[in-house]
Computed example of a mutant assay.
Amino acid sequence: MRILLTNDDGINAEGLKVLERIARTLSDDVWVVAPAEENSGAGHSLTLTRPVRLFKHDERHWSVSGTPTDAVTMALRKVLPAPPDLILSGVNRGANLGDDVTYSGTVSAAFEGALAGIRSIALSQVYAREGMGDTVPFAVAEAWGERVLRPLLGVPFAERTLVNVNFPAIEPDAVQGIRVVKQGFHDYARGSVVEGTDPRGYRYYWFGLHGIEHTPGHATDLEAIADGFVAVTPLQLDLTHTGSLLALGERYAR
C-alpha cells in the first residue's frame, strides 16, 4: 500500500514526523510532500499568481513553495511514480473541529485527495491552551493513530468524501475511545481581533482564536472531544443544500 503524507504546518513540523511514524505501522511505501512553510488557515487555496517550486530532500521527502493543495497536486502529478492508495494529512497542531474545516489547510489537502478519487484522511491534535507553539504534545495522536486508521482501510469511502479525525487534549490512557460523529459548529461572531502597534509605529491586526464560543450539540465532534473521545467525522465535498433547491426553483419559475 502506497501512502502519501502531507500537512499545512510545513515539512519540518513535529506533527508530520508523528504521522510518518504512524503511517509506517501500516506500510513501508510512504512518501512525504508538504508545504515548505506553515500554511495554517490556507483552506483549499491553489497558488495561481506565482510559480510553485519543488524541493527534493531525499527520494521520498519533498516540499513545495505553496499551499497544502499545491503539495497534493505536485505529489500526484510530479513526484510519486504512481498514485497512492491512501493520503494522510496532518497531524495538525491544533483542532480542526466544527466549521474550522472550511479554513483548514489540513482538511483541504484531504479534500484535494478525495477530488482525485483517493482515500483521504485528515488528522489533528487538539491542545489544551493557547501559546504552546512547538510544545504541543502529540502523545494521543501517536498512541491512537494506528487504532483509528486501520479500521478505515477496509471501509469503502463514498465518492468525493473524506474522513476528519481529531485527537483530544488529554493523556493517552485517559481517552475514552473512538466516536463517529457529525460536524459541529462554532460561534465565530464572538472571535477576537487583536490590535497592536509594530516597532515602527504602524498599527496591525491579528485574528485571535480565543473568545470563540464552542456550542457542542448532541453527537458532534465538539462534544466527542469535550467528552475525551477521538472524534471521527465523515465529510463530503458537495456543499449543495438540497432542502433549498425546490423553494429557490419556485422563485424563478414565476
Results as ranks from 00 to 15, higher is better:
residue 1 M to E: 12
residue 199 P to I: 03
residue 191 G to F: 05
residue 203 R to P: 08
residue 253 A to Y: 11
residue 96 N to Q: 15
residue 55 F to T: 12
residue 72 V to K: 01
residue 200 R to T: 14
residue 43 G to E: 02
residue 78 K to H: 13
residue 187 D to N: 12
residue 80 L to Q: 08
residue 169 A to G: 07
residue 142 E to H: 09
residue 61 H to W: 11
residue 140 V to M: 06
residue 143 A to N: 03
residue 230 V to T: 05
residue 161 T to Q: 13
residue 63 S to T: 03
residue 217 G to P: 00
residue 6 T to K: 00
residue 104 S to P: 06
residue 208 G to Y: 07
residue 126 V to M: 08
residue 56 K to Q: 15
residue 140 V to G: 08
residue 119 R to S: 06
residue 38 E to M: 12
residue 157 F to T: 05
residue 137 P to N: 12
residue 107 V to C: 11
residue 82 A to H: 14
residue 132 M to Q: 12
residue 158 A to R: 12
residue 48 L to V: 12
residue 12 N to W: 10
residue 172 P to Q: 05
residue 179 R to N: 04
residue 146 E to I: 02
residue 159 E to I: 03
residue 112 E to N: 09
residue 108 S to Y: 01
residue 17 K to V: 02
residue 135 T to N: 14
residue 89 S to F: 00
residue 138 F to P: 03
residue 33 V to N: 02
residue 142 E to F: 02
residue 226 A to K: 07
residue 199 P to Q: 09
residue 205 Y to R: 13
residue 241 H to F: 11
residue 181 V to L: 04
residue 203 R to D: 14
residue 70 D to P: 02
residue 62 W to L: 07
residue 23 A to K: 05
residue 189 A to D: 15
residue 28 D to V: 02
residue 147 R to L: 13
residue 68 P to A: 05
residue 87 I to M: 09
residue 95 A to F: 02
residue 156 P to G: 04
residue 144 W to L: 08
residue 48 L to A: 15
residue 214 H to V: 09
residue 119 R to V: 01
residue 7 N to Q: 04
residue 171 E to S: 12
residue 214 H to M: 13
residue 188 Y to S: 08
residue 154 G to Y: 07
residue 200 R to E: 15
residue 185 F to S: 12
residue 98 G to Y: 03
residue 58 D to R: 10
residue 115 L to I: 03
residue 226 A to Y: 04
residue 22 I to E: 05
residue 157 F to P: 01
residue 13 A to W: 01
residue 194 V to F: 13
residue 160 R to Q: 14
residue 183 Q to L: 12
residue 139 A to F: 07
residue 26 L to N: 08
residue 201 G to Y: 04
residue 189 A to H: 11
residue 85 D to W: 06
residue 17 K to G: 06
residue 105 G to C: 06
residue 132 M to P: 04
residue 142 E to D: 13
residue 211 G to T: 03
residue 141 A to E: 05
residue 188 Y to V: 06
residue 214 H to L: 13
residue 33 V to E: 06
residue 243 G to C: 08
residue 190 R to W: 11
residue 46 L to V: 13
residue 82 A to P: 10
residue 102 T to G: 12
residue 54 L to N: 09
residue 74 M to D: 09
residue 154 G to K: 04
residue 204 Y to A: 08
residue 200 R to H: 14
residue 162 L to K: 01
